[in-house]
Design a binder for these strands. Structure first.
Lengths: 189, 189
DNA sequence: TATATTTCTTTACAATTGTTAAGTGGCAGG
DNA sequence: CCTGCCACTTAACAATTGTAAAGAAATATA
């Protein structure tokens, strides 16, 4: 495994530690082509993923429209947090953007892991709080910034996204149409 | 105390249980007038609040503009989650909208509580995941719905907000100006 | 390489929103 | 009762965005 298994299971930065190393054998390798659906809207998530190579996106269907919600790359963990931890139907689809080499943790193995080492829950709680802070920032940006500002911030803070994610997905992520994003890009020369 | 101390400490529905009842003496009563600042942007939160009577809002300053982020009412817990649990400077202000009767839990007492009953962390984790699901829905609505639709949903799902929160605050919460909200309201007769 | 398919850009027009400023109504304090 | 303050509405105009359709560019597939 070239990247380190992260503490987070839903998109936070990777954060290795002894505890996690101890249980990394629970993570199983998986290689999939682009556009592979790893989790389908409405299904209960039984797996948390870690990206060794490639990229994923989380999206959902809104009145026939494909709306991207978040993008993930090497070294990041991905899951439908609420679905995985609470065994509820997922509101989202999880799909590969590129051919990807992944590791996944099955819910049964996760259960065994926390049964053996309950302290792992602290790690999960911290990850959940981090995730929440992240979503909060997303939401705040959506209500306080214009689409131009959101695009400019994305360009500054996560330029790699622009190089690896189709613009139509980025447009829906910014809450605008592909046409409007194209105009914004044109205006910024 | 007329309302039950909730499991959540950041806005989820109240959810009493034996465990929580056992520690409810840690919560101290506090009565404050309207527009009282309970937590200031940049400060580290040392208290989590529970609303017995009245209402609160979380807001922040964005380039001189007052942007409301969330509203809370009787029976709800309120805190700057990340600030309280991770002792980081808060990104938000917490302020009363109306004269309010509150209960608060000091961070020191919270520490003692989880030291005595570590299982309370499970409850916190669940609350955190609930919060996250909530923020997620907020964000999704912000990128997929028009301001009209968001206003219509607010009217349907949380009509009490319209009756107790000034429209200017609701406008910023919806990501639009007070003028635009007024037009939308007018258009919907 | 050639062709097909997908992605992105451009255009024109309608609809929505922001901005600024003026006007209306309610409410509290003197 | 009056005055001032605050919240909300309305108006006019500029700017932005959505929609639909056509065209250009890039990518995939044979």
């Amino acid at each position: 495994m070239s990247a380190t298994i992260p503490v987070s299971v839903s998109g936070s930065r990777p954060l290795s530690n002894d505890l996690w190393q101890q249980y990394k054998h629970f993570w199983k390798p998986l290689s999939v082509p682009a556009k592979t659906l790893l989790l389908k809207e409405g299904e209960v998530s039984r797996k948390a993923y870690f990206i060794d190579q490639g990229s994923l996106r989380i999206w959902f269907n809104s009145q026939g429209k494909d709306v991207s919600f978040q993008f993930f790359f090497e070294g990041e963990g991905v899951s439908s947090f609420e679905s995985f931890f609470k065994s509820l139907p997922s509101h989202f689809n999880i799909e590969t953007l590129e051919p990807s080499r992944l590791y996944y943790l099955h819910k049964d193995d996760y259960e065994q892991m926390v049964a053996e080492a309950p302290i792992i829950k602290d790690v999960i709680l911290e990850a959940a709080i981090d995730r929440m802070a992240n979503y909060t920032q997303h939401f705040l940006s959506a209500i306080k910034d214009t689409p131009q500002e959101r695009y400019r911030k994305l360009l500054e803070e996560r330029p790699h996204i622009l190089q690896r994610v189709p613009l139509q997905y980025i447009a829906s992520y910014l809450g605008i149409t592909a046409v409007s994003l194209s105009r914004i890009r044109n205006k910024m020369q």
